[in-house]
């Protein structure tokens, strides 16, 4: 009986709030679920963005960290929340969870509001590796795909290794033989690389700055269209081998499916304004995060493409 009472109360609360939502939103704090722990890269970018959103929307935007199970818990939290605009969350590469049977996320479970960041994957080897440029490395992998220990810089089949495997596919490597090894985050992977346990680590460029400065790690190429600002001595894949392969991780603001278009438009507008603000741009640049804006429409289309591309690569790897 109590439960019934509660759900009735919640339901009436929802209906009344939906009616007044478009013009009044937000009348209370807007929660931002970040699918990574406090103090990490995602946490940082979202805290920067939350500060801008707070100023634009006139309500606090508290960041809530839910990093469990590579973020599956956080995604589940906000996609199953009421689509009233008061629970938003980080939207980053998710297709692998569905394709590996860990969760059942589909593009239609999300409202892809706006993307604000993209960080390219990069290919790192130890400084004394016998492969000092990407062309030689690809030739080596082609000759014997199974002899390389390749770290995904985190969980496998995710943002760092999928573009790399996609590149190998394009270069005609037998990807079913690859030896991809998961790691507890990029720091752990780089530690393994330094200790000689691995041949290749895939992760972003800023994460390797310290070890590259120490002369332990060498970055062969970055998987973007242009060189990255934080270290412009690293060539892009296109400059190294002539063909362009790009990919990596990206971060955007998402919400549960079925949000009010007027609310979506207001958040989209606030994000669009934020990526042009001096304070935000400086904050992102200082730590080597790229700014890449996609509006609601483009981001929604991109999310579907992300699912198709991930599926293509995973199928190729398992020999389908």
């Amino acid at each position: 009986m109590n439960k019934l009472l509660i759900s009735t109360l919640v339901a009436t609360g929802l209906i009344s709030s939906t009616a007044t939502q478009a013009q009044d939103w937000p009348t209370r704090p807007v929660q931002m679920v970040v699918v990574a722990g406090a103090g990490g890269g995602s946490d940082y970018t979202f805290r920067l963005l939350a500060a801008e959103l707070e100023a634009a929307l006139g309500q606090p935007v508290p960041v809530i960290n839910q990093a469990q199970a590579s973020g599956i818990v956080g995604y589940t939290t906000y996609t199953s929340a009421a689509p009233d605009g008061y629970t938003l969350g980080q939207l980053s590469p998710i297709a692998q969870f569905t394709l590996l049977g860990q969760a059942n996320f589909r593009p239609e479970n999300f409202t892809a509001i706006a993307q604000f960041n993209a960080d390219p994957s990069a290919i790192h080897v130890s400084a004394d590796s016998e492969y000092q440029d990407l062309g030689a490395l690809i030739a080596g992998i082609k000759a014997d795909p199974g002899s390389f220990n390749i770290s995904c810089g985190g969980t496998c089949n995710a943002s760092w290794d999928i573009p790399f495997v996609s590149m190998l596919l394009g270069e005609g490597v037998d990807v079913t033989k690859l030896n991809l090894i998961p790691a507890q985050g990029s720091a752990a992977a780089l530690q393994e690389l330094a200790s000689g346990g691995l041949d290749i680590v895939l992760c972003s460029v800023p994460e390797t700055t310290a070890l590259a400065d120490a002369g332990v790690v060498k970055t062969l190429a970055v998987m973007s269209d242009e060189r990255v600002a934080i270290n412009d001595s690293i060539p892009t894949v296109k400059e190294s081998i002539g063909t362009s392969y790009v990919g990596g991780t990206w971060r955007g603001v998402g919400g549960p499916a079925g949000m009010d278009p007027a609310v979506v438009a207001r958040i989209e507008e606030a994000v669009a304004a934020a990526v042009k603000k001096e304070s935000f741009v400086k904050g992102m640049r200082d730590r080597g995060f790229g700014i890449a804006y996609r509006n609601h429409e483009d981001f929604t289309r991109f999310l579907t493409e992300h699912f198709t591309e991930t599926e293509r690569v995973l199928n190729a790897m398992s020999g389908k």
Binding site: N157, L178, M317, S318
Partner: peptide, 8 residues
């Protein structure tokens, strides 16, 4: 499940 295909 048994070990996955992508990992040997």
């Amino acid at each position: 499940p048994q070990p996955m295909a992508a990992t040997r």
